[in-house]
Simulated scan of single mutants.
Amino acid sequence: MLPKLTGHHLQMFSFFKSLIGSFSRSAAIPQSGSNATVQQYLSGLQQAYAQNNGQALWHHFEQIKQGAAPANLKKLRQLYNDVPDALLSLLSYADGTYHREYAGEKIAFYLLGSDVEEYPYYLLSSGQIRQVNRFPSVFGTM
């Protein structure tokens, strides 16, 4: 069970809701930083981390994270034809935050909010998302 967050910690995840209304799909694979909604979300998330004494966590994450390779994003587009550009753009910023290894360090970093109040989520990597399609029992069914 994830820890229950209360009060001002919820600010960190309120920006996620803004993503839902702006999902769209195009034929092109978005480049890192090309989606204004994702940029706004990440900026707000960084501020929320800072307001909740998480500046060092955010800075460390920024230093080690890597975006998904364009070939992996293309595979996701082929597998999930209607994948939103915002999700691909987010993956091009950071290719997952759920037990991902970056710079020799395994991380678990909250990056997403939820429609279930007070519970943050990790972002699966492009490879983990593809595994869900092949092995639904690994992460549950979609």
Rank of each mutant, 00 (worst) to 15 (best):
L90A: 06
Q39R: 14
F13D: 00
S43H: 13
S32V: 02
Y121A: 12
P120F: 09
V138C: 00
L2N: 11
H8Y: 05
S137G: 06
H60Y: 10
K74S: 11
H8E: 13
L111Q: 04
R134F: 05
Q46V: 00
G113S: 09
A69R: 06
L19M: 09
R100P: 02
T141A: 04
E101D: 05
L19K: 05
F109A: 01
A108F: 09
T37F: 01
A108H: 13
L19P: 11
G21S: 07
R130Q: 10
A71C: 01
S114G: 14
P120T: 06
S92V: 05
Q46N: 12
W58L: 08
A108M: 06
R77W: 05
S89R: 02
I64W: 02
A56Y: 01
L2W: 10
L45P: 05
S18P: 02
T141Q: 10
W58S: 06
A69F: 06
H8P: 13
P120V: 03
E101H: 06
A48P: 11
K106V: 13
Q39Y: 01
R25Q: 11
D115M: 07
I20M: 09
E117Q: 10
Q47F: 00
M142F: 10
R130G: 11
G104K: 04
L90N: 08
L112F: 15
E101L: 00
E105D: 07
V138Y: 07
L112Q: 09
M12G: 09
F61K: 04
N81C: 01
K4Q: 14
Q78P: 03
N72G: 13
P3K: 12
A28M: 03
Y119G: 00
L111N: 10
E118D: 15
Y80R: 02
P84M: 03
L124P: 08
Q39V: 08
L73Q: 04
S137K: 08
L111Y: 06
S114F: 08
G44P: 04
Y119D: 00
L73D: 07
A48C: 05
R25S: 12
L19D: 04
G21E: 06
L19V: 08
S89L: 02
L5N: 13
F13H: 09
G33I: 03
G140Y: 03
Q51R: 10
F15N: 05
A28N: 14
L91C: 09
P30F: 05
K4P: 13
T6D: 13
S126K: 02
L111A: 07
Y110G: 09
H59A: 15
E62W: 00
V38A: 01
F109N: 05
H99F: 13
A50Y: 14
T6H: 14
P30M: 01
Y98N: 09
Q39F: 00
H99T: 08
L124S: 07
R77H: 09
A68W: 07
F13K: 02
G140W: 01
L88I: 04
V132A: 13
H8Q: 14
M12V: 11
L5Y: 15
L19T: 06
V138G: 00
N81L: 12
M1E: 11
K65Q: 14
E62M: 13
S18T: 11
H9L: 14
G7S: 11
Q128F: 03
L112R: 08
S92K: 08
G21W: 07
S92I: 01
Q55Y: 09
H9F: 15
S24N: 15
L10H: 07
S114A: 03
A94Q: 03
P84E: 03
Q31H: 14
L79V: 11
Q55M: 08
